[in-house]
């Protein structure tokens, strides 16, 4: 396993009045693919810059395989970065670009040539050494940037929104490529993006950032189905968020909401919480174990894989993803229900 374990302790970054990162603690397993997900301004790029050595934290440490690298310059750090604009040297061809890091390490020419050829084959650009960088397509440049970073065999690879400039189809394709390459090399990948679908497709673990704080951290499935915070619930896909209050009931605590009572295990009574239900979990055919009242269908749009419906229950307007074949029309009144396991109760923050 070539990847290194990365630990971030108490990382804070302030620019004058603005706090970009607030006391971040993070552990990244060796050889895993970690995606740092967040909107613009969340601090994700700052975090990556600090990991890469292009910025220093105001306080806190970065440890790679136990070694404190917080103030190491990028060249001496066991990380390499793939930049958002790829930063391919326009005055060098593909071969010299990819071999640049090896040339800086004084690797002899023969070995350099061999390793460049190997890594180009790995990224699917076999034989492209002589190509002029200007003639490459976006996807090809991406691969060259990747190859250049990987050829020096870094224990940690940092990727700054690497797929942002590609169109949808190409992006999906490259996501598969990135996944495959990461598994082949065993390098620890730390990938920054604002696209939650990308995060879920690639990550072994997702770190959700907002305003410099970690909102959630865990395997994509867990973060999606059982988010730990309101922000995470709202950012990772659509969600219906309903206010509620914890009340002691005869069978244990329940959460009182506008839709009725929702079972809930822990949390102090009388505390205010937010109930999160994903649109695809709400049912309009009465098949869920937990009834939520009758809903009037307001709008319906066909979206291929599902029907996007807005329904009204009392004062609440909810988003529901109904099966594509279900007969629904605006004006219908249908029973709204959900499976209790699909309901997440989040702290009100």
């Amino acid at each position: 396993m070539r990847g290194a374990r990365v630990v971030v302790e108490g990382l804070t970054k302030r620019y004058g009045e603005v706090t970009a990162l607030a006391d971040i603690d993070l552990e990244i397993e060796a050889g895993s693919y970690v995606v740092i997900l967040g909107p613009s301004g969340s601090g994700k790029t700052t975090l990556l810059s600090i990991l890469g050595g292009f910025a220093h934290p105001t306080s806190g440490r970065v440890l790679v395989d136990g070694r404190d690298v917080t103030f190491d310059p990028p060249a001496r750090r066991p990380t390499t970065t793939v930049f958002q604009d790829y930063a391919l040297f326009p005055h060098m061809n593909v071969g010299r670009n990819v071999g640049f890091g090896l040339a800086m390490r004084k690797v002899p020419r023969e070995e350099r040539r061999r390793r460049v050829a190997e890594v180009l084959a790995l990224v699917g650009l076999e034989g492209a050494e002589g190509r002029d960088v200007a003639t490459l397509s976006g996807g090809q440049r991406q691969r060259v940037a990747l190859a250049r970073a990987l050829v020096v065999e870094p224990p940690v690879l940092l990727l700054d929104e690497p797929l942002g400039a590609l169109d949808l189809k190409l992006r999906r394709q490259m996501q598969d490529e990135l996944s495959r390459i990461q598994r082949t090399t065993g390098t620890t990948f730390v990938h920054v993006t604002h696209d939650q679908e990308e995060a879920m497709a690639l990550a072994d673990a997702v770190v959700v950032l907002s305003h410099g704080r970690i909102e959630d951290h865990g395997p994509p499935e867990r973060v999606y189905l059982r988010p730990s915070s309101r922000f995470a619930a709202g950012f990772m896909g659509d969600s219906n968020l309903i206010e509620g209050r914890v009340v002691e009931g005869p069978d244990g605590s329940v959460v009182e909401t506008a839709l009725g009572a929702v079972p809930w295990g822990s949390a102090a009574p009388d505390s205010r919480v937010v109930v999160s239900i994903r649109p695809e979990h709400l049912r309009l055919d009465g098949s869920g174990a937990l009834g939520l009242g009758r809903a009037e269908v307001r709008e319906r749009h066909f979206a291929g894989v599902y029907q996007r419906c807005f329904v009204r229950v009392g004062d609440l307007e909810l988003l529901v993803f109904a099966p594509p074949t279900m007969r629904i029309s605006p004006g219908d009144v249908v029973p709204l229900s959900v499976d209790p396991t699909d309901v997440a109760v989040l702290p009100q923050d």
Binding site: T81, A87, F89, A149
Partner: peptide, 13 residues
């Protein structure tokens, strides 16, 4: 672009 110089430094120059 500054990223060119950053990339060079990152790769060991």
């Amino acid at each position: 672009p500054e990223s060119y110089r950053k990339a060079a430094r990152d790769l060991g120059a």
